[in-house]
Design a protein around this nucleic acid. Sequence first.
RNA 1: GCUGAGGUAGCCUAGCCCGGGAAGGCGCCAGCCUUGAAAGCUGGUGGCGGUUCCGCCACGGGAGUUCAAAUCUCCCCCUCAGCGCCA
Length: 454
Amino acid sequence: MYPISYVRESADTLRAGLVARGRDPSAVDRILSLDRERRAAGDEANRLRAERNRATERLAEAAKSSTPPDDADRARLGELRDRIRELESTGSALDGEIRERLLLLPQTPHSSVPHGTGAADNIEVARFEAKRPAPNAPRPHFEVGHELNLLDEERGAKVAGEGFFVLWGDLARLEHALIRFMRELHRSRGYVEVSPPILVNSESMVGTGQLPKFADDSYQVSPDGLWLVPTAEVPVTNLFRDEVLLADDLPLRLVAYTPCFRREAGSHGVETRGIARVHQFDKVELVQFTTPESSYDALEELRTEAEEVLRRLDLPFRTMDLCTGDLGEKAAKCYDLELWAPGSQRWLEVSSVSNFEAYQAVRANIRWRRHQSAKPGPLHTLNASGVALPRLVIAILENYQTADGRVEVPPAVRDEMGGQKFLEPNPFVGEKELGRGRHSRRSSRTPGPATEKP
RNA sequence: GCUGAGGUAGCCUAGCCCGGGAAGGCGCCAGCCUUGAAAGCUGGUGGCGGUUCCGCCACGGGAGUUCAAAUCUCCCCCUCAGCGCCA
C-alpha cells in the first residue's frame, strides 16, 4: 500500500508499475480524482470550522462575563453545524473509498524484475543438482506413501474433507524431524524463534495484504470472525503492527513454525492426487524487518537461507526470478524455489522469497527511526518459506526411493529420527490398507504433467 | 462470563462530579554556561494543510445531546484486579 501523498507525487511510477504487471493504470487516476474531491470538501469544512470556533469563543466569553449572548451567532452556529456534518460525512465516505482503492493497488515491481506476462517468462537464476545419484524409475509420492501405509488422504477427507490428509508412523516422524531440522538450522544462523497465534483478527490480515482482495483464499472462523492464518507471515509480521522499531533492532530476523490453512477456492479438481495442494499444511517461515536501504541485501540473504535447507537435504532444485506478470500483488521482487519431483516429473514450489518493501509496513503501520530524535518512517518487510512441508515430503519420497521400493531417510535428518536409515511401513491399517479408497483402481503409474528434467 | 477500576502526547500524571482556549513532570532536541561533561537556565518537542505566521484536527474507537464535549448519554475495543470457568 502506498500513502496517498506518494500517489500524488509519483503517479507516473505507479502507472508504469501497473502496466508492467498487465494491469489497468487508470486505477491511479481514479484515486487522484477522489483525492481532489476529498480535499475540496476538507478545505471547505476547515473554513467553516474556523468560523464556528470564533463564534463559539464569543459565546464563551459572553457566558463568562454574564453579558447577553449574540443571537445571530447562535443562529449561524446551527447552520454551520449542519453544513459541517454534511461535509464531514462526505469526507469520510471519500476517505473510505480512497483507502479501499489504495489497499488494492499492487506494489510497484523493482527495476531488476524481468518483464513478462506469465510463469513462462520467469528466469532461472540458480540450479542445484543433488550429489546422490537420482533414483531409478521413481514413482509418485502417493503411490509410495500408500504402499508403505504412511500417507492417508482417505481418512483426512473423512475427518475434515477433501484436501486434508493424514501422515502415519514414520512419515509423521519424518515431518516433525524436518520441522525441527529447519528451525534449528535457521536459529543457528541468527533467526530468533517465535511461536505466534495461528488465529488472527481482520486488522492483521489487512496488515500483511491478505485482505481485502483475497478474503476467499482464507478460512474465517465463526462466531468471532477470526481468520486461520494462511502463512506464519501474517501473525509474525503483525507482531509489530503500530510499533516503532529502533535502527539498532534492525535487521530483525525471525523464524516461525506454524500450520497454514488455505481454502484454495477455484482450484477444485486440480491436483486431487497426493499432497501437493492441500487445505492444511505445515511450514517454517522466515521474516525480516529491515531498513529501506538494506532490504535487497536481506532478500538475497533470505534466498540463500531457504536454499540452504534444500542443499543440506541434497534435493535437486532451481530458483526462479519471477517476472512482472507473475509477481504477487504485495511483492516488489520475488524468487521461487522449486524442488524437482522425479516421480511426478514436475517442479514443486516450496518457497517464495519476497521483498515487500513498504507495502506491508504502510498497511500495518510498522515504522522505524534511525535515531531517537528522528522522525519515524515505514521500514521494509520480507519473508521466505524455509520451507513448506508437504511438498518437501513429496520431494523426499520421490528422490530418496531405493530400487527395492523403500524410502531412505535423508542423512541430514537421520539424527532427528533416532539414526534410522529407512522409513518403516506402518503396520496398523485396519480392515483395508491406508489411502486406497478413491484412487485404488487407478493405474499404479501415473506421472503428473511432464516438464523439463533437471 | 460477572463485578469493579481504568485508557489523556514517546513515558508518567492533572483536568471529568459541576461542558466553554489540553496543564504539569520525565525523556528527547537546540541554545546559553563550561577546557569537556554533568548540573543549572532558556526555548522547542502529536498529526494534516497552506508556510515569516496562521488554520484545522487530536484526550482508546464510534455514535448521540448541545451554540459548544477530554468532561454528559449510548455502543464497542483494550488493560488491570477480584470472582467464575478451564487444558
